[in-house]
Every structure is written in C-alpha cells, then in structure tokens.
Design a protein around this nucleic acid. Structure first.
Lengths: 192, 192
DNA sequence: CGCCACGACGACATTGCGTGTCATCGCTAT
DNA sequence: ATAGCGATGACACGCAATGTCGTCGTGGCG
C-alpha cells in the first residue's frame, strides 16, 4: 500500500492523488486505508516510526562517560551507516515528493520533532540537565538533517557518515565565535 | 475573528471547534473565513506572518563585520525586546492551545521552518557560505524557541533577553565538547 | 448628480478527508 | 465443530476546503 501511494504521488502529485485511487491500486477499500494510517500523509512516514525507539535503545546502551557531543557524533554515525547508506535513490524520490507539498513538509517536521523529543529524553535518562538535553537533541536532529540533505544533493561520491562529521565540524565552527576567541583566524572567515 | 477563534479554542478545544462556530461568533459566514485564512489553523498564526520580513530587514541593516553568532545574539535580543516582552500572558494562553493539538504544533513547526529559511537567506545575502548559513539559521531559531519556552514556563522574573543570552551560552557549552578541549573541566560535567 | 468599477461578503453547490458503526470473512484454539 | 478474534468491506455522516455566482457598499470620475 505504501508502494501504491508513492507511485501515484510521483505520477500525479500528492494533492491530486485521492485516497480511493490509492486503495483501488492496492486492491483494498478506503476505510481500510485509514485503519493503517492516521491520515493521508502518514503513508509516507512509516519508516520513521521506528527511529525514536531505535535511538532510545542506542542511547541507553552507550557508556555514560561519553559527553553529549561525542554521543551525538557516534550515534549519527551508526544511524547513517545502518539505516541510510544504500537507500540513496529511494530517499531521493521520497524527498522529491515531500518537498513538492507543503502539507508533507509539515508532517516531516513533526516527525523530526518527535525524534528530537526521544533524543532529549535519552539525554535526560543519562543524567544530563534539561537545558543541555534539549539543545543537544535539537542539534543532533539539525546536523543529521543537513548532512542527509547534502548527501542527497550530491552525486553519491561522499558517504553520508563523512558528511555527518563534516557538518558537525561546521557546526562547531559556527558556534565558537571568533569574536570571543583569543586567536581569531581572520576578519572575514564568513564570506564566500 | 482571530479573537473569536482563540476564545472558542480555549473554551472547547481546537478540534471540537468548528469553523461555522467561529464565523457565527464573529458575525460572518464560513466562506469568508477561508477568504482570510488558508485553513482553520492559520487563524492562530497571523502574528508570525511578519517575522520573516522583519528578520530580513534587520539582517540587511546590520554591519557586515558581525560574525554569524554575534549577529544572532544581537538579532534575537532585538526581537525579544520589541516583539515578545510584555506579551507574556497572551503568549502563554496561545501556547497552551497550540500544545494541546497535534495539528497546531505541526503548523507551528512549519512557521519556524519558514522563519529559519528567511534567516538563512539573510546570511547568504551577507556573503556567508551555504552550510554556515543553514546551520546558523537553524541554531538561531532553536535557541530563540528554547529561550521563549523557558521564559513562558517560569513566573516572569527573568526577562526574555536574559534567557536568550543564557541559552546561547548553554549552546556554546554543549558544542565545545570538553573531550576535544585541552583543559577538560571534569569527567562528569553532564550530570544533574 | 448619476454611473460604474472594484473589493468584500453572502449563498449555494461540490469534492474529498476522516470517523463511526455494523456485518462478514478467515484463522486459530480448545 | 464452534466460539472467539482480528482484519476487512459496506454504508452513512460531519466537517474542511474550494468554485461560482449574486449582492452590497464605497469611492472615483464624468
């Protein structure tokens, strides 16, 4: 059913595709569709559903000595290799469909928000304070999202894990403001 | 009309409130509602509509010598003082309504995404590279959002601008991982 | 003064999403 | 064999959202 839906979305767009059309192609009825998915958008996000639980498990099984940033770097690396690498083409078409519709972009943001919340709780369970947990969780999601976006944009030469670490480096570079450093690199490091 | 809608949402919830109910209280018809708002959710987000343009203007009128983080600190400070300070009670009830409904939270995330995109373009127009612009924009929105959340939670003693700067400090503290610093503070600085 | 162009609103019809309810089918355990 | 149970089909329905047309000011211009 997810397959039938994605096909139709690619062929004629999300809004132009009606739920009866999807169920007809899948050989089911309209009512059955809404027994499996809360609404029409959810049919594209069944994969993401396992991520929060996966992340929770990962964070619980990691030595408590790791600092938040080190944990993020390691966790994103694992997710990248085990769940994304090799799915590039599928993820590209899926992203194209989502980016083409406002409602789907909205739903994707919600999924990221849920994931961020799971990460935040993961940090809290490790004894990290509330503020740090919230910020670290948001950062993790942001960095991973930017890295995946860059990964899907380019022609597949750089592996996702490289881009994750590169994005993390860029983030550190942005937050460590040279105006507050003793050895500022240059006066215009922000141009290009 | 925004007023009638907010009242009804507080009284009986968002989902339980129907558009005809809103228009009836406002003395208009259902069709007129959708001439002013794209959908039922939008009635709560007319305020946010001006933010992207405001931010664009602010970023264009700022000396080019400022680094991204310095610009963010200054910009958030201005927004906090001119658009939020003094609106605390209204923002609290509005947040309560939004947090109570999945669809409204979703829409709020979209508004933040649009704002982030405007900030990203603001950085790009200042000559900042793509990656830095994207990360800085997301960081700005995240930090401000966390700060506002903290501001609405507490009893109004700390001004929002203080919380913004405090949240920025916390962010720098998270991203500058002690594991990569020469003078690590302690082995367990993440607990509490 | 009269006319008209234009924007805002009302009234009506229509489509599609999402839900409630009940009947039916197939599978499994005892 | 049958009783139970989960998944599905078959309606019916409320509401969101859009298209279309008619109406009512309001304000400019001859």
């Amino acid at each position: 059913m997810e397959r039938a839906a994605l096909e139709l979305f690619v062929e004629q767009g999300f809004t132009e595709t009606t739920v009866p059309q999807i169920t007809a192609r899948a050989g089911l009825t309209t009512r059955t569709f809404f027994r499996h998915f809360a609404d029409k958008r959810e049919v594209l996000f069944t994969v993401e559903e396992e991520f929060p639980a996966l992340v929770s498990g990962l964070m619980a099984d990691t030595p408590a000595s790791l600092s938040p940033m080190a944990l993020i770097a390691q966790g994103l690396e694992i997710i990248a290799v085990t769940r994304f690498e090799g799915q590039r083409e599928y993820l590209r078409t899926r992203r194209a469909v989502i980016q083409a519709d406002e409602g789907l972009r909205e739903r994707e943001l919600r999924k990221l928000s849920v994931l961020s919340e799971a990460i935040r709780l993961g940090f809290r369970n490790r004894g990290v304070d509330e503020l740090t947990s919230t910020l670290a969780a948001q950062i993790a999601v942001t960095v991973f999202n930017v890295a995946v976006s860059r990964w899907l944009d380019q022609d597949g030469e750089q592996p996702l894990s490289d881009l994750v670490h590169d994005t993390l480096r860029a983030l550190r570079s942005v937050t460590t403001d040279p105006a507050e450093q003793t050895h500022a690199a240059s006066s215009i490091p922000w141009t290009s």
